[in-house]
Structure formats: structure tokens, C-alpha cells
């Protein structure tokens, strides 16, 4: 997969960091603002996807990236389940129990476990979106060979 022109490369280089930070903002403010893990995760994946579109990656690198990304996806969903299970063992026997203190409503450090759920949903969704993109790219590369 070949890259694009120098103008696109330079713009994407500047933009992708901003997109990534914006994604992190949406993920971390999921419990007090509109948005959350899913929305933010898609934005996070977008920052990687524009980089690959602009710079282009060779086939073998794509394969390796797909392996690593799917590992991320796998681990984050497992951690989510463990968070849910931790509610069971935190004394109350309720699955998905939010046992941390809720804090002051409207502030960033509040909502008990919800920000953690948002964080790992963000990683999971971002990794999933990226894996889908990589799988389609790899398929295209394989078909053009």
C-alpha cells in the first residue's frame, strides 16, 4: 500500500495526535458528558486509520499490527468482564455492582467504576474498528497480489 503526497502526510501527522487526544477526552468524560467508551473508541481508531491511509504500510507490517491490535481487543474485553465479576466478590453478590464511591456528581473523578468501564470499552471498540480496517486492507493487498 503506497502513501499519499507530502502535503497529506504532513497534515495527517499534525492532525492524528489531535484526533487521538480528542478521542481520549471523549472516553474519559463519558460519564459526565455526551459520548463515552464507544464514541471515543471510534475516534481513537480513526487517528490510527488516517495515519495508515496517508503513509501506507507494507503487507507484513499490516499482519503484525493486526495481531497486536487483536491482542489488545481481547485483553480489554476480558478486563471488562473481570470488572463486572469484581462486583460479585466485593461483598454484595451483585454482578456489575458499582461498589466504588460515586463522588460528587458532574466532576471528572466520579461515577465509581463507570470511568473504568468507559476506558476499557474505548480500547475495545477502538481496537475492533482498527482490526476491521486492517482486515479489509490485508484482504485488498492479498487480492491485488
Amino acid at each position: 500500500m503506497r502513501g499519499m503526497s507530502i502535503i497529506v502526510k504532513k497534515v495527517v501527522q499534525l492532525m492524528s495526535a489531535l484526533i487521538f487526544v480528542f478521542g481520549l477526552y471523549i472516553v474519559s468524560h463519558g460519564h459526565i458528558d455526551p459520548g463515552g467508551g464507544f464514541t471515543g473508541g471510534v475516534v481513537l481508531a480513526g487517528s490510527f486509520i488516517v495515519l495508515i491511509l496517508a503513509y501506507g504500510v507494507d503487507y507484513f507490517k499490516l499482519k503484525k499490527q493486526k495481531e497486536i491490535t487483536s491482542l489488545f481487543e481481547n485483553v480489554s474485553i476480558l478486563i471488562l468482564l473481570l470488572f463486572g465479576l469484581s462486583g460479585l466478590f466485593a461483598g454484595s453478590f451483585y454482578f456489575f455492582n458499582n461498589y466504588l464511591s460515586p463522588g460528587a456528581p458532574g466532576t471528572l473523578i466520579s461515577g465509581g467504576l463507570i470511568p473504568f468501564y468507559n476506558l476499557f470499552i474505548g480500547i475495545k471498540v477502538g481496537a475492533t474498528m482498527f482490526v476491521i480496517f486492517l482486515a479489509l486492507t490485508i484482504y485488498k493487498e492479498e487480492a491485488s497480489k
Partner: peptide, 27 residues
């Protein structure tokens, strides 16, 4: 009663197995 949490295992166990399988397969 306290042991009623057991019924969550009916989907927690398969979920757990589903997410652990690809990791375990690497090792």
C-alpha cells in the same frame, strides 16, 4: 438469598471462556 448470584454464571462462564480462548491459544 445470597446464592442466587449463581445464575449469572450461565453467561459469565461462556463469556469468560470465549475471551480466554484466543489468549490461551497463543500460549
Amino acid at each position: 438469598n445470597m446464592e442466587s448470584w449463581v445464575i449469572t454464571l450461565f453467561f459469565v462462564l461462556p463469556f469468560f471462556c470465549a475471551f480466554v480462548n484466543p489468549l490461551a491459544d497463543r500460549i
